[in-house]
């Protein structure tokens, strides 16, 4: 390593340690840039793919008010995708390239969206648990070391708390409803609980990227810390619903002042990551289909913009 590179790396780390945000034009280690591109694009894809399971119930929302709330919630996620694709672009990768990586299957997105939404209660469980888990991660990322990513997160977090509230409200209404609605509510919690815990990623002892990401302050809390925080929160909130979390080992531990919880089925997690979740195929196909069927629209828009430009410059020539 040359002296110069070493100096750059030192001053980069000093900045990070001093909580000075790294900006697009600043020097950064190539590995830092790559890690960020991977993480931000995965995050962006998760917002976009995440529109699908909930979009699945827009047409069947049970009241006009719920329909309006769900549409604007799913639309928010599209907006989050936009912010994140833009912050990814500041690292030198275009939105097109990033989206191509998703469609080709090269890039990953959060595995949670490979689970199906089977009943209306799933809209509640997703808002409460999935958005709830995402918020903990995103609140942490508001302080991430890369400026554009941190700023995107601040905007996103403002909208996310509404997502979690509307989800909890759906469940609360169901939990006070008919027997069929109560059963629907519990069933959704049963199905979404464990996958939500997996959203925080592998255990710290198994996680390959954690140390470096913590040092660069891309991440500021470990997977296990965030997961514990989430469990402690949900274990209390579920009481308001008069429902239970599907974990017989869930118990308050007076010593640790946290909830103990049961073993997570990591083989399921890795299976879904590898593409064997219940909806991996459908989700990716839906994204590809939208992209392919949109091709002629994007071409038309580009062709028209081009025509307008050349007409305008021809007009300028005439005027001159």
């Amino acid at each position: 390593m040359s002296m110069q590179l070493h100096d750059f790396e030192n001053s980069f780390q000093q900045k990070v340690d001093a909580e000075i945000k790294i900006e697009p034009k600043d020097w950064m280690p190539e590995a830092y840039r790559k890690t960020l591109i991977r993480q931000i694009s995965q995050h962006a894809h998760s917002e976009i793919v995440g529109m699908l399971p909930e979009g699945n119930w827009i047409s069947r929302a049970p009241s006009l008010k719920r329909k309006a709330i769900l549409i604007s919630k799913v639309q928010d996620e599209a907006g989050h995708g936009l912010y994140l694709y833009s912050s990814c672009e500041t690292l030198g990768i275009t939105r097109e390239e990033t989206i191509n990586d998703l469609n080709s299957g090269k890039a990953k997105y959060s595995s949670i969206f490979n689970y199906p939404t089977l009943t209306w209660a799933d809209m509640g469980a997703i808002g409460w648990l999935v958005d709830g888990a995402a918020i903990l991660n995103q609140v942490m990322l508001c302080r991430t070391s890369y400026g554009p990513y941190a700023r995107a997160m601040v905007r996103i977090c403002k909208e996310e708390s509404f997502h979690q509230r509307q989800g909890f409200d759906i469940l609360l209404t169901l939990s006070r409803g008919t027997d069929a609605q109560k059963a629907m509510c519990q069933d959704a919690i049963n199905r979404w609980w464990w996958p939500s815990l997996m959203m925080f990623g592998p255990k710290d002892s198994e996680s390959t990227n954690t140390d470096q990401s913590m040092k660069w302050k891309i991440k500021r809390k470990t997977n296990d810390e965030l997961r514990q925080q989430f469990i402690d929160m949900c274990a209390e909130q579920v009481k308001i619903l008069n429902m239970h979390l599907p974990d017989k080992d869930l118990k308050w531990n007076t010593e640790t002042q946290h909830y103990d919880f049961g073993e997570i089925d990591w083989s399921e997690f890795w299976n879904v990551v590898k593409g064997n979740g219940p909806c991996n195929k459908q989700r990716l196909e839906a994204r590809r289909k939208a992209h392919e069927e949109g091709e002629w629209v994007r071409e038309a828009a580009a062709a028209y913009a081009e025509k307008r430009k050349s007409r305008a410059s021809a007009g300028n020539l005439e005027a001159a």
Binding site: S59, A290, V297
Partner: peptide, 19 residues
């Protein structure tokens, strides 16, 4: 129109038709 939500040809236009 809401059927386009999540399936639009361009992200910005997905948002527009949903709006």
């Amino acid at each position: 129109n809401s059927e386009w939500c999540g399936h639009g040809p361009i992200l910005e236009q997905d948002i527009a038709i949903t709006n």
